[in-house]
Structures are given as C-alpha cells and as structure tokens.
C-alpha cells in the first residue's frame, strides 16, 4: 500500500530520555477512553460465574492498554546496565499494515490528519489487523467491559464503551480533535490550521515529565515538526516501511538502536 499523505499529519514525538515509565499516561488513556478496570467476575453472566475467572491484569497479553509501556535494557550486566522506558501508542502509520487487511473497512486512514480510525460498531472481531500490526498496538475485547458497582457513572464522553468481541486501539483521542476543530470554528479561526497545543491527546496532557509531544508533523509552527527532524529522532521498525507518525527521540545510541533491526549479531553463525 502506498503511503497516505495528508496536508495535516498528527503525530507524536516521545522523548525517551524524559520518560520514567510511571504509568500516568496509561491511566489517563484508560479514563479518557472508557476502558473498564479488569475485573475477574461477571455479575451479569451466570455461565461465567460457573467457569474460570476473567483475566488478571498481570497477564499482559490480555490487557486493554492502547498506550503501553515497554521496558528497554542495554543488555549489559551490573554495573554497566542501563534501562529506558518506551511508551507505545498506535503509530498511526502512513502505510498501515492493519488497514488494507480489514475485510469490512472497520479501520481506515482516510481523514485529514492521518489518524487511523477504528469503527467499533463495524468490527467483526476477526483479529486479522492484530496479526498484521507489528507494534501490538491493537487490542481485542476478550470479555465484556464491566465496571465495578457504581463506577460506571463517571464515564468520559469521548467514546462509548465497546462491547466484547471487537478490536480497539489508540486513535490519538480523536474526539479531542473534533472538539478542537469545533472550538476553532466557533472562535472563527481555521479548524484546518490549529495552533500548537489546541489539540493534544490525554497521555500528552497528563505526562508529568512532558515526554510526549503532540502536534502536526507537517506544520513548522508545531514543536513536533522540528523535534521529529532532530538527529536523535527515530521511528520504530522504519525498515518495514510502515511510516509511523509516532517518533521517538533519545540521545542514547543504544536506545535508538532498539528502534529497528540491524542484522543483530552480524548474521551470527548463519
């Protein structure tokens, strides 16, 4: 698939040298996007009660973490060991692996801004997109979303809770984009030329070290424009040609090296 280019290209530049892996972004994301806490019991389903519990949050392969944090290591033994944290939202690829494979057009990259959408009411839950995404940015609703008693009253209006059986992922808090455009229209400014900071994601907002920068990668007035062009910037798996709209930056070479494959071990004993 060809790279889809848009006039506006929303993107992130995440400064790994600033990220402490505290997890605030992951929690902010769940709250913004109405992701239910992982509860073991399903009080509405007696068959569930008779069989095994739903998943434990420590099973990292069953969580719903649109924003996920990976721990990086330089692989050296003590005392030369170094560590870093890499937050991983959806990369909103320019040439997404997931979009062309979806049989029902439940995910698309067709809107100005270049955000890869996910249409929950259309998703049939085949999980082909998950198999396609090398970043593991896509998550499946293995169970029904259930909030512990009383907790469902405080829900965000950003997005409806998804039923079980559909795939979901980060969409750069798309409703915030709509809100920002609406606000611009009301104020008589150009919704297609939002100033830096008029639209940011929940994770960007909440990050205590401001490691996440968000903006239009094509707009020189946005900070990400310059940051994404810095010599310390890199993207994940650039060699595969997916053209992610999420950049990372680090002054540490070993961190940058973890962003892609470099025929590790020099081909080893091949």
């Amino acid at each position: 698939m060809q790279v889809k280019e848009f006039k506006i290209k929303w993107g992130m530049v995440i400064d790994i040298d600033k990220c402490t892996g505290c997890g605030a972004c992951m929690i902010g994301c769940q709250v913004e996007n109405n992701i239910a806490p992982m509860t073991k019991k399903d009080p509405y389903n007696y068959v569930q009660a008779l069989t095994k519990d739903r998943d434990d949050p420590s099973n990292k392969l069953r969580t719903l973490t649109w924003m996920n944090i990976y721990e990086l290591s330089n692989g050296q033994p003590y005392p030369n060991h170094e560590t870093a944290y890499l937050p991983r939202p959806c990369m909103q690829c320019g040439s997404p692996a997931c979009v062309p494979v979806c049989p029902v057009v439940a995910t698309d990259k067709n809107e100005e801004g270049g955000i890869v959408s996910q249409i929950y009411p259309r998703c049939i839950g085949c999980r082909y997109c998950m198999a396609a995404c090398p970043y593991h940015a896509r998550y499946f609703n293995w169970w029904d979303p259930l909030w512990p008693e009383g907790m469902d009253k405080g829900l965000s209006t950003a997005v409806s809770p998804r039923p079980r059986g559909v795939v979901e992922k980060c969409n750069f808090c798309h409703s915030r984009y709509l809100d920002a455009k609406d606000k611009a229209r009301q104020e008589g400014s150009d919704p297609m030329n939002l100033p830096d900071g008029a639209y940011v994601t929940a994770c960007t907002d909440i990050c205590p070290t401001k490691a996440i920068h968000f903006g239009d990668l094509n707009n020189p007035e946005h900070k990400v424009y310059e940051l994404s062009r810095s010599k310390h910037a890199f993207r994940l798996l650039e060699k595969l040609g997916l053209h992610p709209q999420v950049y990372y930056m680090s002054e540490r070479e070993w961190v940058r090296k973890q962003g892609d494959n470099y025929n590790a071990g020099g081909g080893a004993h091949h």
Binding site: C22, A24, I27, V31, P37, G150, G154, I206, P208, T209
Partner: peptide, 19 residues
C-alpha cells in the same frame, strides 16, 4: 502540577466511585 498528574491521582475519580 505544571500540567502533570501522578498515576495514583490520575485514577482519583475511579477511587471516588469505587465500591
């Protein structure tokens, strides 16, 4: 704050509504 929130307080409302 400076715009940031710690991971505990980020979940404050959910604790407020917790059973």
């Amino acid at each position: 704050s400076g715009g940031g929130v710690c991971p505990l307080c980020a979940n404050g409302v959910q604790v407020k509504n917790s059973p």
